[in-house]
């Protein structure tokens, strides 16, 4: 145990992986809280998939694996995807559910086309882009962590700054509008911040598992508290814990890939919360119901015995 702690601090690889994963957990935990409360959890899934062609196009334009342009490409593609999503929902008979699926899968398909095209064309850079598919938390280096910290820090600062406005927007957008807060502007800002979380997540857990990083911590945190502020902090904590646990587990057991392990750790937290959180826990509810049924049965039996009912 103490050895592990020492590794966590002094082992260059583990430290970066754990720090990077924890940062992702915190940022996606915070922004996921708003996404889940606005019932937009799966938007993150769509944004993550839609980012792939952006990364490829950025690579084709710049011809380098430099982080910043690739992440910028991911962000822009995510935005274009969101715009098309809105267009489909507003202008056609198709539901939001269909629109999410359409944007997610076709953008990703186009991304795969570009990715394989790039890979065939110049083999040397192959490993560079593939990591965005499954994420390569295990390969995070110090410069990645620094970029995460800057991006995440800006996102969190904005959430802190607009905490009230986001709360109002999420709870009662119409009332927010009547007070003169530009609800469209606020929505755009919030979605952009979710894009930031997705961009951080792509490198760590990859396209498919990003949905879990946004939804899981928030869904778990919601069970423990009835206060938005507490929920956000808890959600960040759950995200961070899952990140560190995943990083450590996959460090000690080589055959465990980091991203999936983080998500599995998170899933355990989610189900434990659903089952055992005070007040909202399903186990307690089941127990209460059982007690009620028992008391009721006892009462009926008593009434029967006393001859009140037959």
């Amino acid at each position: 145990m103490s050895e592990l702690l020492r590794d966590l601090i002094f082992d260059y690889t583990l430290r970066n992986v754990a720090l990077g994963s924890a940062l992702l957990g915190i940022v996606s935990g915070v922004l996921g809280s708003y996404a889940v409360l606005r019932r937009q959890g799966l938007l993150g899934d769509t944004l993550a998939h839609a980012a792939l062609p952006g990364i490829c196009i950025a690579f084709l334009i710049t011809g380098s694996r430099a982080q910043i342009p690739l992440l910028l490409g991911a962000g822009i593609a995510g935005w274009v995807g969101t715009m098309i999503l809105l267009l489909i929902v507003r202008r056609t008979v198709l539901s939001e559910d269909a629109a999410l699926g359409i944007v997610l899968s076709t953008f990703f398909g186009f991304g795969v086309l570009l990715l394989t095209f790039i890979n065939q064309r110049d083999d040397a850079n192959q490993a560079g882009l593939d990591k965005y598919l499954f994420g390569q938390a295990a390969a995070l280096i110090e410069s990645d962590v620094i970029i995460f910290a800057i991006l995440g820090g800006v996102a969190l600062a904005l959430v802190l700054l607009f905490y009230q406005e986001f709360k109002l927007l999420t709870f009662d957008p119409e009332f927010a509008g009547s007070l003169g807060f530009g609800t469209t502007k606020l929505s755009v800002l919030l979605t952009s911040l979710i894009v930031v979380a997705v961009v951080i997540g792509l490198q760590t857990v990859g396209v498919v598992l990003m949905a879990a990083m946004l939804i899981g911590p928030a869904a778990a945190a919601r069970q423990w508290t009835d206060r938005l502020g507490v929920m956000i902090v808890l959600s960040a904590a759950f995200g961070a814990v899952a990140g560190v646990v995943g990083a450590v587990l996959s460090f000690t057991e080589e055959r465990l890939p980091t991203g999936p392990t983080i998500v599995l750790a998170l899933t355990v937290i989610v189900f434990a919360s659903l089952a055992f959180a005070p007040a909202r826990g399903l186990v307690w509810e089941w127990w209460r119901r059982r007690q009620q049924r028992r008391a009721w049965a006892l009462e009926v039996a008593r009434l029967k015995a006393e001859g009140h009912v037959r």
Binding site: V36, R39, Q40, G41, L42, G44, D45, V208, L209, A211, A212, L214, I215, G216, A218, A219, R222, Q223, G259, P260, T261, V263, L264, T267, V270, L274, R280, L282
Partner: peptide
């Protein structure tokens, strides 16, 4: 369970299975 909405339910289950 009504503890999470439909989208979140999907988003909890399938990444876990995939992972």
């Amino acid at each position: 369970t009504r503890r999470v909405d439909a989208g979140a339910a999907i988003g909890i289950v399938f990444p876990a299975m995939f992972a």
